[in-house]
Design a binder for these strands. Structure first.
Length: 383
DNA sequence: TCTGGGGTCCTAGGACCC
DNA sequence: TCTGGGGTCCTAGGACCC
């Protein structure tokens, strides 16, 4: 989906179309004041009444920027304070994840009505297997891609970009070629002309660290990566990563489109308005900690899972991260149990520096429906 | 007053078992 | 003449993605 969060907000606030708008941070007093004053008539709010990036004080990052805002050099993951210097006049809207999820469900429903083999890749992205869809091969997939775009737009008013290719790796790259509202078709023979000139960073899975290492060897493009012998890549990046890099550069990827998958972990974390100290801010930290445990427990219960590994995550004021976890015998989805185990984890981690973030995680998940069976199994084993 | 929140996967060492 | 070879599980950290 194109600039998904921002595009959903523009459906509510059409008066902001074409303006630099960024989504980020939480709900603020100005936001509540506007909502109270205009009620349901959101489209009537004058542009001048919206909060600006320049007025923002506090922590947070941009989650999405409209294409107009990107012209000013602001974009996803940029700190709001830094973005405010680059584009102070941009309108700043708070994240409304519940609303984005509603639109996410709608556009995915449109897709599965047309092409049922769809893999969920988060709130704004999917892989679709066109292979068995009637007409899926017409014009190399362009006809079906157009149908999906048109159907999504009619149902939601949102645009998306589609990459059509023989596998997920290349399709993902292709989806970036003609953003927004574009279609790109990449056939196997197009590898050298369309993919090899791209930066290695365009490979889904090559991040800043891997890219830096590749650059240090003089490898900047996917073509340069493809030119390195497989053995050389294995020698410098390890057996697994080296082989994967070689395959990726040659456009090889045999991962299937996966329809369903079980969650591995669930977590809640929060960055504080100001850095907190374990001693001076003990009461506040304790309250936040308990709330995080209750939220994770509620998430587990709502989705029907229980987990055996309880963990915590801290981010110190210097941005270093520490994690501790502990695996218990019986899976739990109980806030009290999670709070107790997470509390023990907290005792094992240094707490002399100020904290920026606190998180609670439950892993080794099992559907709640299988927990009884597991407990029964334990009982049988005991006797 | 730089730097969110929710995830997955990988690596590597140590414990423990056969 | 010191002390194998697999395997699984647990834990901590880190890279990466949306």
């Amino acid at each position: 989906m194109d600039a998904f969060y921002a595009s959903v907000e523009l459906l509510r606030y059409p008066q902001l179309a074409g303006l630099p708008v960024v989504i980020g941070g939480g709900r603020r007093q100005q936001d509540d004041a506007l909502a109270a004053q205009y009620g349901e008539r959101l489209a009537d709010i004058p542009v001048a009444a919206f909060p600006r990036l320049a007025d923002y004080v506090g922590r947070g990052v941009i989650t999405t920027a409209t294409y107009a805002a990107r012209q000013f050099g602001v974009g996803s993951a940029m700190g709001l304070m830094k973005a405010a210097r680059a584009c102070p006049q941009a309108i700043l809207l708070p994240v409304d994840f519940a609303e984005y999820r509603r639109y996410s469900r709608r556009f995915k429903q449109v897709i599965t009505d047309i092409a049922p083999v769809m893999e969920d890749r988060g709130v704004d992205e999917v892989y679709i297997d066109f292979t068995q869809v009637p007409g899926g091969q017409r014009e190399g997939g362009r006809v079906l891609a157009r149908l999906i775009q048109k159907s999504i737009f009619e149902a939601t008013g949102l645009t998306c970009s589609v990459g059509v290719a023989p596998n997920k790796l290349i399709a993902k790259m292709a989806s970036e070629f003609n953003k927004p509202n574009g279609i790109a078709i990449v056939q196997p023979d197009d590898l050298q002309t369309l993919v090899w000139p791209l930066a290695c960073r365009k490979i889904n899975g090559v991040g800043p660290k891997a890219d830096e290492k590749l650059q240090s060897y003089g490898i900047h493009t996917i073509g340069e990566l493809a030119a390195r012998p497989r053995d050389w890549l294995v020698a410098h990046f390890g057996r697994s990563t080296g082989a994967w890099l070689h395959d990726a550069a040659w456009g090889r990827d045999d991962r299937p489109v996966v329809l369903e998958s079980e969650p591995v972990s669930m977590s809640r974390e929060t960055t504080f308005d100001r850095d907190l100290h374990a001693v001076q801010d003990r009461a506040l930290l304790g309250q936040i900690f308990t709330e995080l445990c209750q939220q994770v427990a509620a998430d587990l219960q709502r989705k029907g899972y229980a987990g055996r590994t309880i963990g915590i995550k801290l981010r110190y004021d210097d941005f270093r991260v520490a994690t501790r976890d502990h695996t218990i015998v019986l899976p739990t989805q109980d806030a009290t149990v999670i709070r107790r185990e997470a509390g023990l984890c907290l005792k094992r981690v240094p707490l002399d520096k100020r904290l920026r973030l606190l998180g609670v995680r439950v892993g080794k998940l099992l559907p709640q429906s299988e927990v009884g069976r597991q407990a029964q199994g334990e009982g049988e084993a005991l006797f």
